[in-house]
């Protein structure tokens, strides 16, 4: 053990003098690199920090001093956006629609993915391929017939239409992820449950579903974001402002309050905060999810 550990140390010893012998150029290059990395970090973050700081500054302060400092904090912008510009309504609508859609697609996708992964039945491969093909459907192409379908169902200007569209849209991805997880579960666990007298439904609900909780977390996070951020679908399917979700509400707000910059900043922050909370809770899932399948 000690021999193994000492080997890298020996390597380090050999490396260190070479590093010291290097001319100043390497040092300067290193300095430039660190500066570039930090500089770009500033470019990424400062606009968002400006958004947050300006949302706490008065209209007058923003107009006279564009740089978001000093902050003489006021909550007036949030009061304006939340009550006068009905961001309270938009936020609640967005939350209800997003949670309902994610819940619906998860609830229907779990059993379907389980059946596809665990049971043999005729047409199984076709059904799975059909579901997965849904991952490649360009949404823009389907939106017009979707509009007419909802029109025929008398669901235009009804948030239920959004829930159906988002839930259907989430099914391919959810089934893709869930089926992969179910396939990795050891079959012995379900067998044990069946020996104890549990039927297929019971063993699915009380043995398999609890075991794929990490997959459920990933799917929920990854479906929540695009639904929360979506703008085109509610723009097409909703009419009355009291039903608007945050995206459409925000665009209406920008049309009407174009000169009230302070409240506009507050509106942007309100539309972003729920996502920020989600990211802080689930940063690891997001980064591993984005980079899944690349490298080792």
């Amino acid at each position: 053990m000690t021999a193994v550990l000492s080997e890298p140390a020996a390597l380090d010893d050999r490396a260190a003098p070479t590093a010291r012998r290097l001319p100043g150029r390497a040092f300067w290059w290193q300095a430039v690199v660190v500066l570039a990395l930090c500089g770009y970090a500033a470019v990424s973050v400062i606009p968002l920090v400006t958004m947050i700081l300006n949302s706490f500054r008065s209209h007058l302060a923003i107009a006279t001093e564009p740089w978001p400092w000093p902050v003489d904090p006021t909550l007036q912008n949030y009061v304006n956006a939340w009550t006068k510009a009905s961001f309270s309504t938009y936020t609640i609508n967005s939350l209800v629609v997003t949670i309902a859609s994610v819940a619906l697609s998860t609830v229907v996708a779990l059993p379907a993915a389980y059946a596809i992964a665990r049971w043999r039945f005729r047409g199984r491969e076709f059904v799975e391929a059909l579901f997965i093909s849904g991952l490649f459907i360009p949404f823009m192409l389907a939106i017009l017939p979707m509009f007419h379908l909802m029109d025929a169902l008398r669901l235009i200007d009804n948030p239920l239409s959004l829930v159906l569209v988002y839930a259907a849209n989430g099914i391919p991805f959810s089934i893709f992820v869930f089926a992969a997880f179910f396939r990795h579960l050891p079959a012995e666990l379900e067998e044990a449950a069946m020996i104890d007298g549990a039927g297929p439904v019971r063993s699915f609900l009380s043995v398999s579903v609890p075991l794929v909780r990490p997959a459920i977390a990933t799917v929920v996070v990854f479906r929540f974001v695009p639904i929360w951020n979506d703008f085109l679908t509610p723009l097409v399917l909703l009419r009355s402002p009291e039903k608007f979700t945050l995206g459409v509400g925000l665009s209406k707000f920008f049309g009407e309050y174009q000169t009230d910059w302070a409240s506009l900043f507050a509106g942007l922050v309100i539309a972003t905060v729920p996502l920020l909370v989600l990211f802080i809770v689930a940063t690891r899932q997001i980064i591993t999810g984005i980079t899944a399948g690349i490298g080792k």
């Binding site: 619906l104 697609s105 229907v108 996708a109 059993p111 379907a112 059904v127 059909l130 579901f131 849904g134 459907i137 389907a142 979707m146 379908l149 159906l164 569209v165 839930a167 259907a168 849209n169 099914i171 391919p172 089934i175």
Partner: peptide
């Protein structure tokens, strides 16, 4: 349930 929702609303 998943198939019906997927087929009617998306496919």
């Amino acid at each position: 349930p998943a198939f019906a929702l997927f087929a009617v609303v998306l496919l």
